[in-house]
Design a binder for these strands. Sequence first.
DNA 1: CCAAAAGTGTTGATGCTACACCCATGA
DNA 2: TCATGGGTGTAGCATCAACACTTTTGG
Lengths: 248, 248
Amino acid sequence: MREKIKNQTNPNVSVDCVVFGFDGTDLKVLLVQRELRDNLNINDDTLVLPGDLINDNEDLDDAASRILTGLTGIRNIFLEQIGAFGHPQRLMKERDQVWLRAIRLEPSARVITVGYFALINIKNYKVKPAGFAKHILWHDYDTVNELGFDHKLILDTAIAKLRNKLYREPVGFQLLSKEFSINQLYTLYNEIMGGEIDRRNFRRRMLKTGFLKETDNFQEGVPHKPARLYTFVRKEFDNVSKNNFKFY
Amino acid sequence: MREKIKNQTNPNVSVDCVVFGFDGTDLKVLLVQRELRDNLNINDDTLVLPGDLINDNEDLDDAASRILTGLTGIRNIFLEQIGAFGHPQRLMKERDQVWLRAIRLEPSARVITVGYFALINIKNYKVKPAGFAKHILWHDYDTVNELGFDHKLILDTAIAKLRNKLYREPVGFQLLSKEFSINQLYTLYNEIMGGEIDRRNFRRRMLKTGFLKETDNFQEGVPHKPARLYTFVRKEFDNVSKNNFKFY
DNA sequence: CCAAAAGTGTTGATGCTACACCCATGA
DNA sequence: TCATGGGTGTAGCATCAACACTTTTGG
């Protein structure tokens, strides 16, 4: 049997992470198949967000970092708190309880969770060979249905927060490679906003700001005219942004 | 000696509330002088946000409501979560520990707090006779200095969130009476934004939207031309707001 | 030469800023 | 009649949405 939680774990507070990634076309979310992750045999294919109870001497942000580094190997991930989720019944669905009884010292304890969202460049995340890491998967954001616990609610809150941030802050660049084309940036924004941004106006607005620095590099291996690549210059952005800049 | 906390209280999770009010001129915050509130004798005049540990069967939002209703008598207060604050040392300043030892069963327990902010019309809050409620006070937002625990951080986060919300959502009306003049609305926005909004342009923009319905009532008892009063019509606002409306 | 995406320009409407002055009222 | 805030008007500039066509490359 699996070793249960250690003593310094706080039984009442957990952290869950919504990790967004972008593959050039679609927005993705990192999900965990909990039965596989925890190596159980309870016939449960429920998907959940990666998360864990916090340690008693650990800051909330650090707990979130710990979870993400454990999953992806990446350090210094862009991370931001979504908020606390504490409905008294949030762990009480029967399926969820089965899993908790298998894994927790106090399966019926009241647990408040603190949600975080992260943005990572999907190419920096090495998908480990199937079988070893089958319990982790990049799921299309658009087609996520039910998740375990209240994780769908956390995901919905995360996307709202992301959209909101995207409006004024340069977080989109976290999801792209260091060099990117304007149209990749456009696709990203358009996808996340689920909406109809005009491609031509978007391009013009971005270029006018001056915080995109053009490089001498172009896309390679594409079956059409290769686009010029740009980098994001934070210093320039900070100037522009004082002037109440908006991305869309 | 004061009765200590009851058994069903969760020792690891609390809720703290930032209550903003507006008196027509200045933005105010509701603060508590903790020694007086808890009827202690520990020579401690530290100001803190109103807050409490949550009960184990109680939703976070409900805990915040409970605290506010207890303080002000008002039910159905506008309330919104700010986020969780969980630095491991957040209760460990010596002054804070003195107070905790006097009041808590587990004064050194790790406590994560969830912050909320509320907006109330200052006139709906009956200030009780001094002596009885001296421990509660409306403090000018501008002149708040240090607070106990990490409450200054929570307050700073709250004002940022308020400013952000103010931009797109009609929360300002929560701080005014049902009927208000355009210039009262202007003063409120200008005060909260700490900034220089043009009064005339603000008025024009607000009136153009159509979600302010003019009444036949005017200010009374003012030593100058009485302003016409308006009400806020949410239904109209929802129309306008689909169209990406911004307040400033 | 075809497909597919990159890249470019214009026009009209709208909104915003930055202004200064008169009005109505109570004291 | 004076002080105080209430209320109005305009002109120029900047921004934005809406829209279609040409260019460059790989296959």
